[in-house]
Design a binder for these strands. Structure first.
Length: 577
RNA sequence: GUGCCCGUAGCUCAAUCGGAUAGAGCACCAGCCUUCUAAGCUGGGGGUUACAGGUUCGAUUCCUGUCGGGCACGCCA
């Protein structure tokens, strides 16, 4: 709990007042909020409004009754009954100013909350198929997840970051096949390639790399005329080609597959690190097959009579757990579905003893939520521990022009390219700005602009200004300690800044509670705006030493909080720009 | 067709588990650098919160319906 947070104290005052009144049977929660307008005080309580119906009494009368018997407090300048019956609390100026001392003392730890109380949280995010480089569509989930993870850590959760690697299944075979064809091309000099293969340049690069390292190891089908079978259905053709590759290459197919997948995983990991995203674990889908957990969960479901055999396939009766229909676990051709491995994976997550499990998924997977929850319920888990956050799509624009993307066609802008173009700071900030359930229009041209249109600069510039003033002053921030309260900071701009600074801890808790890390960007822009306004109107480095000291303390506190917020976003806080 | 998400200023988006007069940025108009960084500041116009009902002291927020947009509906992943 933040020592500068007076809410508990205010609650105690109100509760004490209530006890003295015949309202003791009330069952309303005494809640405080920060009013939008400072005209309504520093904290506002709506208790009288809530009690009004139950007591069948005018809320203003109730509020006045409460106010009359409420004990006085050193923290408060005054309390008023306002509006329909709000109790508005105005904090004492000296107390408000103490937030500066709190910030300077705690530094990067200012705003830390204890609400997580050490609970173990698993956050799974990104989890893009390792069939190609991460592109702009993956960036949003990456930023959301990594920011939320940091926020939750600040709120005393023990966070474990995980990437689920779909390194099994057909798409991996398509990847392998694509690499093989490009590899063969290098020997034949032709461009023979399956229509629905992965066409990106990275496939060709990998093929070249393999040839350099391993020579002609996979050059075993130079005639390679199977493309000309006359099959119209491109997906059927792909299956046939995969089958062919497996039989032609034999054991070498597996090595080619492993090399191809590992190259993609490494490239993802590298791109993510540059992008400020790291994981504690890369969980392999292959593992849930090889260690028997897929079979084991299916057996578990079968023992509970929740699996039907229909037409040679195994169906999980998910409709008994409020899913629309039953889902196939094992196909009639003997192969497991993606769903089967996902059930095993989620079962594994639950067995690892987390207090909460968070999945960050693209919104296109929303139809998948009921079946996963159904499976968890069926396996005897508390599915409410699983929180699935759906991230809406990001559409990519170049100015007015929408850019279409597709992994197979190889037409996409990668994270790597994005970072090279606009930098990590702008890219991350841009992604972080929007709420997860809103579509995001990512304008590449705008993100590239090194101008005021680009919101990240506005916040960073505020930080740089603070740093610049401190540097101009020439002293050490630590030396301000103990002297920061000697002059009352009671100009309107100063009061606004103090209030905004003291909002930071609650803002952070809200981000954590509601999974809304975009609030950080809103907060930072507002704090930066107040700083810029103050800066323009007020000489910080006043000749009057006590005044200068107090103002510098405020500036140092603003700099610290801007830094804390930017750090959470994974955006740098430059001292000069 | 069914289900989920969204609809707020010209554009892109906020709005504290329902709170007081719905806020920013961009764009547009008019001003501010001999003073700590003008990547900044000040002022101005801009809204029936898609529409119609309902719930209540109070609704952008919750419920129902309509319209519009996105997504998902396979023995694909």
């Amino acid at each position: 709990m933040n020592s500068n947070n007076p809410v508990d104290h205010l609650k105690a005052l109100v509760n004490e007042a209530i006890e003295k009144l015949p309202y003791s049977s009330y069952d309303c929660l005494v809640t405080f909020e920060r009013p939008k307008s400072s005209k309504h005080g520093d904290y506002s309580c709506n208790l009288a409004l809530q009690l009004s119906k139950k007591l069948k009494k005018n809320p203003r009368v109730i509020a006045t009754d409460i106010l009359e018997v409420m004990p006085s407090s050193d923290l408060l300048e005054r309390v008023e009954v306002a509006g329909a019956g709000f109790l508005n609390f105005y904090l004492d100026t000296y107390f408000k100013q103490k937030v500066i001392s709190d910030i300077l003392k705690k530094g990067l730890c200012f705003g830390d909350s204890s609400i997580g109380s050490g609970k173990k949280i698993l956050i799974e995010f990104v989890s893009a198929n390792p069939t190609g480089p991460l592109h702009i569509g993956h960036g949003r989930g990456a930023v959301f997840g990594s920011t939320l993870a940091r926020v939750m850590e600040k709120c005393s959760f023990s966070v474990f970051r995980e990437y689920y690697v779909n390194d099994a299944g057909r798409q991996i075979d398509i990847l392998t096949l694509s690499v093989w064809y490009r590899y063969l091309n290098l020997f034949t000099g032709t461009q023979s390639f399956p229509e629905n293969g992965y066409k990106g340049q990275y496939i060709e690069d990998l093929a070249i790399n393999l040839k350099e390292k391993y020579g002609d190891r996979w050059n075993q089908n130079s005639e390679n005329d199977i493309l000309e079978t006359g099959l119209e259905d491109q997906e059927l053709l792909l299956d046939k080609l995969i089958e062919n590759a497996k039989s032609v290459l034999g054991k070498n197919y597996e090595t080619l597959k492993d090399l191809s997948v590992n190259a993609q995983i490494e490239s993802c990991e590298k791109d993510l690190l540059i992008f400020g995203v790291n994981f504690d674990n890369w969980f392999s889908e292959k593992k849930v097959f090889s260690d028997g957990s897929v079979e084991s969960v299916i057996e578990d479901l079968e023992s509970k009579n929740l699996v039907d055999n229909r037409n040679g396939a195994k169906w999980f009766k998910s409709s008994e757990f409020s899913d629309d229909k039953d889902r196939v676990l094992k196909r009639s051709n003997g192969e497991y579905t993606y769903f089967a491995s996902d059930v095993a994976y989620h079962h594994d997550k639950f067995q690892r003893g987390f207090n909460q499990i968070i999945n960050i998924w693209g919104a296109d997977h929303h139809g998948y939520v009921p079946r996963v929850k159904a499976a968890l319920k069926a396996l005897g888990h508390d599915s409410s521990l699983l929180k699935i956050v759906l991230i809406q799509f990001a559409s990519l624009f170049r100015g007015e022009q929408k850019v279409s993307m597709s992994t197979r066609s190889g037409e996409f802008v990668t994270i790597k390219e994005l970072v090279a173009d606009v930098g990590v700071d702008a890219a991350r900030y841009f992604y972080a700005m929007r709420k997860n359930d809103q579509h995001l229009d990512f304008d590449l041209d705008l993100a590239k602009k090194k101008s005021s249109e680009n919101p990240v600069y506005y916040v960073q510039y505020a930080h740089a200004r603070c740093a610049s003033i401190i540097s101009k002053w020439g002293g050490k921030v630590g030396d301000l300690s103990g002297h920061e309260l000697q002059v009352s900071l009671d100009q309107p701009d100063e009061i606004s800044l103090l209030r905004k600074l003291s909002d930071y801890p609650e803002m952070l808790e809200n981000c954590c509670r509601d999974f809304v890390p975009h609030n950080i960007t809103v907060y930072l822009r507002e704090l930066a705006a107040l700083l810029h306004r103050y800066y323009n109107a007020t000489q910080i480095l006043s000749a009057d030493v006590p005044i200068r000291t107090s103002r510098l303390s405020l500036i140092a506190a603003v700099r610290q909080v801007l830094n804390n917020g930017l750090t959470l976003l994974g955006v740098s806080a430059p001292d000069s720009m």
